[in-house]
Design a protein around this nucleic acid. Structure first.
Lengths: 160, 160
DNA sequence: TCGATAAACTTAACATGTTAATGAAAGTCA
DNA sequence: TGACTTTCATTAACATGTTAAGTTTATCGA
């Protein structure tokens, strides 16, 4: 989407443009196609895709401060602030101020949050398994490998 | 992000979870790292990432109706409606009702929009070229190939 | 031809993305 | 110690994502 190429003169006189394949759009489409399969399940349990990411990160990592949580869940800090309010109201998480550094918070799953994940995760796993069965585990592995290498390369020379 | 695996008992007694690599998060991170490089340029020209996608699609495809434009630019219809209002106000696009089917619209670049793209595209191309130079064109090509195959496989058996 | 359906938007309502600014608490250093 | 800077988190404001409902115009079938 963000690359460009020189305009090409067409016989009909309209100047159109045939850019090379777009990395951002390709990533967006792939992601959309995957999420499409999970969305009905997430909606059924009344959690957004981002809330689900946050809950999962908390289960995988244990209690975290907001900055770390935001980074690992791929959510911006202002979004996280709003989401935490909702999740706390709903009783899925617990927030306490850190004793050492009182700017920092400690965010963790509540009992209800843990139970919620225990209930919903199997359905998520099932959808993923179906996906894997349909298009092949190897294809997914290869894609993940490429993505990992790509991200590593980009993170390495950030602003080289 | 959306897959799951069985909890693992840890020596410290906390039940954490080590899921396999997450496809949605990997796609999200990769995309974010790419867009990071383009954002300053887009902000400087006061266009959002999505507006930029829409403008580029219009240049590449010529006038389109809203549905087609939304699909190609990877934007939802309600978002597009709002964006078109802004872009038209700004004078970058022209919207006219189709003569045949009056439900349908025909959306195209205005002169100003064409000029805007002509001015900004080189900067976009430059950023992309730098990205390519840094991490290697082959790596990008491989990733695009994997993404393309993945999307093709998913679109093919949609709800298999 | 009329009534029901579908198609192409559009609007509404709420959640998140994005940037800038603010508040409070640490950290730094002369 | 006290001004300066940095960090963590929050708020504000606006754009987009997402779903559901509504409007207008086509289309289809009895």
């Amino acid at each position: 989407m963000t690359q460009d190429s020189a305009p090409r003169q067409r016989p009909d006189g309209f100047e159109l443009n045939a850019p090379r394949r777009s990395l951002p759009i390709a990533l967006l489409r792939a992601r959309e196609l995957v999420m499409e399969r999970f969305r009905p399940m997430l909606n059924a349990h009344d959690v957004t895709e981002q809330q689900w990411r946050v809950l999962r990160v908390l289960r995988e990592s244990g209690p975290l401060d907001a900055s770390m949580l935001a980074e690992r869940a791929c959510v911006l800090a202002p979004s996280l602030t709003r989401m935490l309010r909702a999740l706390e109201t709903r009783g899925l998480i617990e927030i306490r101020r850190d004793g050492e550094d009182r700017r920092r918070a400690s965010i963790g799953l509540s009992e209800a949050g843990t139970a919620f994940l225990r209930d919903v995760s199997p359905q998520s796993a099932e959808i993923y398994a179906k996906l894997e069965a349909e298009i092949g585990a190897e294809r997914i592995t290869r894609l993940l490998d490429e993505l990992e290498a790509f991200v590593a390369a980009l993170e390495h020379d950030d602003r080289a």
